[in-house]
Amino acid sequence: MSNRPNRSRRPGGAPSSEQDDRRRNLFLIAGVVVVVVIIGVLVALGGAEDDEVSTDAPDFGPVAVDGTPLPELGDGGADPAVAQPAPQVEGTDPEGASLSIGGPGEPTMVAFLAHWCPHCQNEVPVIVDLMEEGELDGVRVVGVLTGTNPDAPNHPPVAWLEREGWEGDILLDDERFTAGAAYGLSGYPFVVYLDGDGQVVSRTSGGVGRDGILLRVGELQAAG
């Protein structure tokens, strides 16, 4: 006895008629699908002009790191980077002007942001609101645009921050994301709080919301 399926179309009845019906229905459905595909192509070609966003701002900039890179931030436990000096990162802003983070200066909040990350897209308006409300007065706020991918959504990143009303400095990471790696980036958004001596007060990976930011900024202001 064979286990092969019975390939006869229908027991009894009029198989050839049923096969004809089935074939006709399949052609009908295929015709409908072809019409849908044609409509889709027309829609795609019609909307193609709206997709490109023109901007002169570059995606990446040159980055030089001076100092020992911070260890990657783990999932739990004490952050080994706290009280360590952050490496000094020299780079450029979207206009090409020199910019640096790390080293002695004023207390600084360095936010590493990826344009395509929904958590960054949620966190940036929170930071912008805090800046506008004066909650971050006395703290230098720097957004480091990293993880940039021209194929990913919400590109270009500079246009995104401008759209959000970002008032802080902007530093462009390079194509190898050197600045992020130097600060031990483990996820987006990644925020590093540096005191006036350029030492790490705290680091956070992922969105922490308004209260989370205010908590770290309070620690930063207390540390000076």
Partner: peptide, 15 residues
């Protein structure tokens, strides 16, 4: 999760 995996998060909307 609270953040994006730098390598390839599943929350990324490519298109």
């Amino acid at each position: 999760s609270g953040g994006c995996d730098p390598n390839n998060p599943c929350t990324l909307r490519w298109v």
